[in-house]
Each structure stands twice: as C-alpha cells, then as structure tokens.
Design a protein around this nucleic acid. Structure first.
Lengths: 226, 226
DNA sequence: CCTCTTGCTGACCGCGTGGTCAAACCACCC
DNA sequence: GGGTGGTTTGACCACGCGGTCAGCAAGAGG
C-alpha cells in the first residue's frame, strides 16, 4: 500500500493523440479538480505562448494559476504533460474553422469565410496561435505525429473539396494545398508577428487585423476569380 | 592592474545598432579570432534557430563550434551577447531583398522580384528565418528597438514607393504595408513552418518552395494587376 | 634560450529549475 | 466528535546551466 498513489487526477488524456470529437476540456471529476485544471491550462497557455516551452517555468505557471508548484504537479505529472495537454486540447479548436468549410456551400464564400474565421482567431486567440507557432518552429517535437496524421488527413480532405470546386469552374484552378498554406500564413502572421506588425505600422494603428481584413478580402477575391 | 582584462576581443559591436553598410561579419583582429568568431556565430545560428534563445545552451553551441565552453566566453562575454551579435549581423542580410526594390524599376517586376528573392531566402537561409521568427514570437526582447526604428524606416520608405506606383496606375491600389506583410508571411511561412508544410504535403514532395513559387507568382500577378 | 601576449582549458561556483515527499489540511459523511 | 478521502504545501533534492578563474599552452619576437 506504500506505492499506491492517492488518486492522481491525470487531467487531459496524454495517450489519446486524437481527441476526435469527445469532450475536449471538461474531464476532471471533482468540481475543484475541474476548476484547478482549467486554471492551470489557462495559465500555461499564457506562459507557454509568451515564453515557449523551455522559456516557461513551473513557478511562472503556478503563480499565474494561483497555485503552488507542487500543487501543479499534483494535477499534472510533469511540465511536458501540461504542454501536451494544452496542445491536444486546443488542436480541435484550432482546426475548427477549416472543418467548417463544407463542399456543399458556395466555393468562394466558403473559402472567404474560412479566411475570415481564421483571421478572427488571430485577433481573438493570439496566444493559441503563438503556442502552435512555437511548437512548429521548434520542429514540432510534441506534435509531429498529429501533423502527419490528423492534420494531413483533414487538409487532404479539404484540398480535395477545393480541387472539386476548381474543376467545376467555381474558382480559379489554384493548388489547394498552397492556398490553405497561404490562408494560414496570411492570417496567423498577424498574431505570431504582432509586435513586428505594430512596430512597423506605428502606434496610431490600433487593430492591424481589421486593416488586414480589408486587404485580404480583395486579395483572395482576385486570386479565386475564375 | 588586477582588474585589467587581458584583451577581450568582444567580437561584433553590440552597441552599434545599425551597422548600416559597413563590413558586416569580418571584424576580429587576429586571423584565429576571425575564424573562431565565425565558427561561433555559425554554430549559434544552428542552435538558436532550432531551439530558441532559452532552449539553446552554451554547451551545445560550443560543441557545434568545436570549442570549449570557456573558450566561447573568451570571445563573447555572455550567451546573450552571442544572440545579439547574431541578430544584428544578420539583419542587414535579411533586409537586403527589400532594400534592392527600387522605385526606378517597373512596379510589378520589382515587387515580384522582391517576393522571389524573399522566397529564395526561405529556401536557402531557413535558419536565419527561424532565428528572427523566434525572436519576434517572444516579443522581440532583443530587437524591439530595431523594429520600430530601422525596420520601420525602411518599410515606410518602400511603402511610399509602392504607393507611388499605385498612384501612377502601374499596379492596383493596395495597402503597401499589408502588401509587404503578405510577402513576408507567404514566403517565411515555408521556412518557419517547414515541418508542418512537409507533414501536410507528405514525403513525396521534395521542395515545397518550388511549388510555392508556382503558386505565389500568379497570386501576386492577380493581386497587383491594375 | 627567455619573454610577453594571445589563445585555451579543467575545475569550480551559484543559482534556477523540474520534480519528490512526508506531513498537514480540509471537506464531507457517519 | 472521529474517520476518510481528496487537496495543499514547506522543505528538500539533483542537476543542468551560465559564468568565473587561475593557470597552462602556443606562438612571435628577441
């Protein structure tokens, strides 16, 4: 009985590489577990997105979550577990805009809508954007698997949809993969490189994303016009 | 006489925030100094671009440079000094493609040429791209000054040029700043998010940048057509 | 040969950091 | 009240890391 851990909430499933469509965030049993786990993930999102994985410290996360460091490690077995839990629990949210793009809709409207939703996420969820950007920049050591399985599968499917639209003459015949890359690059740029954008634009511009939408809308309209 | 440092090469100028057009890399006195400083910067570029500032360790850099850790600190006073030296010495190279864009040339050709040069740098200098991406992502703690002075000045100047082209009817009237952001985003994406791009495209695609050029050329041609 | 400057290194240090543990705390139910 | 589980923490540890230092090697010039 000496080696039997008390309970170990374990929080987010680390083995479950593909949460699919199960309940993403709410998992903890007790009310207090759920509250603390949520606070930890929120704090970790703040710190990891701002400092990167190595740059973040457990003390920073604990302080931001209003908990003690050992208490963090009561809910998560390690720093890396927190990071993985964050990434997996946010991947669904992050890819939702692409999932919403449906073949049954109007081609141009669907793509423009996707671009706009992605841009809105850059504005409203810049921390998530930077979290993923950090992970990818470092070579995706904790997400590489997901990229070449889940993400690739989703993009493959949507690329086929776009190719169908192009074949039907609804949009210009563009490479669907690089079209998606372009949407990613052009929208996430405003979240990931925010400081640079603001430094270049100067202090008077208050919301670069709004300007970006006025720039990107005609860009994609011209690109997609058959 | 006890507090007189032997000589302290000091390497790259840390105070010189704008090297302008002076000799960028070669500065050390002795032949051996120059060789080692170059090896250190090369190794540091490898490590910093792959691991970020906090993720990199002096031991890694020293090993990659074929030197001992104390020997590193004989040429550079600190880890941060190496990082700053890298950033400043590479900034000129990094901004050269934009500087080459000249008002006297043909509008569309100049912009397309800039895009292509930038894309070429993503292909040939991905480490530099990731180094800057890391720095910006972390909020540019060591480069913020340069962004809002040198970089802003350069972009302001080139934006005025682009605006002139648009006013002359040579290209469509687009926001010059966001046009430049678009070029940055679309080209650097292939360096910074290389693993993601390759994961999505699959193993058979060997050079995403070549495909990217075939995608981006018509994109900008359509965008800029008056 | 000696000497002086530059280059280089093994050994060391202090500290921050991830992680552990035994003990205490607390809420809730008999 | 006493028990019993989940919850919290102070104290602690091992280790990796940035950085220092005294001293040694190696040329260059006499």
């Amino acid at each position: 009985m000496a080696e039997d851990k008390p309970k170990a909430p374990e929080a987010e499933g680390a083995e479950n590489s593909v949460p699919g469509s199960s309940g993403a965030t709410p998992r903890g049993r007790t009310r207090i577990q759920q509250r603390n786990i949520e606070a930890i993930l929120e704090a970790a999102l703040d710190v990891f997105s701002a400092q990167g994985f190595r740059g973040a410290t457990l003390d920073q996360i604990a302080a931001a979550a209003g908990l003690s460091k050992p208490n963090l490690l009561y809910y998560f077995p390690s720093k890396e577990a927190i990071h993985i839990a964050l990434l997996t629990s946010l991947l669904d949210i992050w890819l939702a805009p692409l999932r919403e793009m449906e073949a049954s809709g109007d081609a141009k409207a669907e793509i423009m809508g996707y671009m706009r939703r992605k841009l809105q996420m850059s504005r409203e969820m810049p921390r998530e954007s930077r979290l993923f950007a950090n992970e990818i920049l470092q070579g995706a050591p904790r997400m590489g698997e997901m990229l070449s399985t889940d993400l690739k599968a989703l993009v493959d499917a949507k690329a086929a949809v776009i190719r169908g639209w192009a074949a039907a003459g609804q949009i210009a015949p563009v490479d669907p993969y690089h079209l998606i890359f372009a949407i990613w690059a052009l929208t996430q740029h405003y979240a990931d490189f925010d400081v640079q954008v603001r430094a270049v634009l100067g202090p008077e511009h208050d919301d670069p994303c709004t300007e970006a939408e006025r720039f990107l809308t005609p860009l994609f309209e011209r690109l997609l016009a058959p």
